[in-house]
């Protein structure tokens, strides 16, 4: 299974590569700033859900190598979250910090999005082997349960941003519910291991 990680790593870079290609040779549409920001947000959410899908998929398929992908997919989720945040702060708001602060405190969907980022930040920082050792498996696992509220905030952020047509955020919400439901099921079945 030595091919697995490099293949997934390369595939995970495709969205950002596509974006770069479009920006350079194609078009990001009539409102490129909006396109850029939405595109990065979409992929941040997709990778976040994908990261949450790794463990259920492994348990379901009994294919052990999947476990090795969890950290990488999770870090890609954080990577796209960072790009999404950077495009919002750096390109959309053009580093208008006052406007950013107003947005964060005043607009619920931005508050939630920022909350999602802040919850993911310690997870990314403690993703290295040495950090796992330093924290100890138990504490580390406990800390990394923050990914669940982070994902909920992420989906809520998208849901509340949408003006009226909630079909797309609904799809994400259903997938998240299934992924959280799976864990609840295993949790109920084997409470001592949880």
């Amino acid at each position: 299974m030595r091919w697995l990680k490099p293949v997934v790593f390369t595939a995970s870079l495709l969205p950002v590569a596509w974006l770069g290609w479009q920006a350079a040779y194609g078009s990001l549409g009539i409102n490129p700033v909006e396109t850029l920001n939405r595109f990065l947000g979409d992929w941040a959410l997709r990778f976040l859900l994908l990261a949450l899908a790794v463990t259920p998929l492994r348990q379901w398929t009994h294919w052990a190598p999947l476990a090795r992908l969890r950290r990488m997919v999770g870090l890609f989720a954080f990577f796209y979250v960072c790009l999404h945040l950077a495009s919002y702060v750096g390109i959309d708001l053009f580093f208008d910090w006052a406007a950013l602060w107003k947005d964060v405190v005043k607009r619920t969907y931005i508050t939630l999005g920022m909350g999602c980022f802040l919850l993911l930040l310690p997870l990314a920082l403690t993703s290295t082997d040495s950090m796992i050792r330093r924290l100890g498996g138990k504490v580390w696992r406990k800390l990394h349960r923050l990914v669940f509220p982070a994902a909920i905030l992420g989906v809520a952020h998208f849901w509340m941003m949408v003006k009226a047509d909630i079909r797309e955020p609904l799809v994400y919400a259903v997938i998240l519910a299934v992924l959280l439901g799976w864990r609840l099921r295993t949790f109920v079945r084997t409470p001592q291991r949880a």
Binding site: A23, A24, Y25, G26, S27, L28, G29, I30, P32, V33, L36, I91, F94
Partner: peptide, 17 residues
């Protein structure tokens, strides 16, 4: 112009903006 501006705007952004 727009096609160009869109590309330039997203890549070079700042100066044009």
């Amino acid at each position: 112009f727009l096609a160009g501006a869109v590309a330039a705007g997203s890549v070079l952004g700042v100066g044009r903006g």
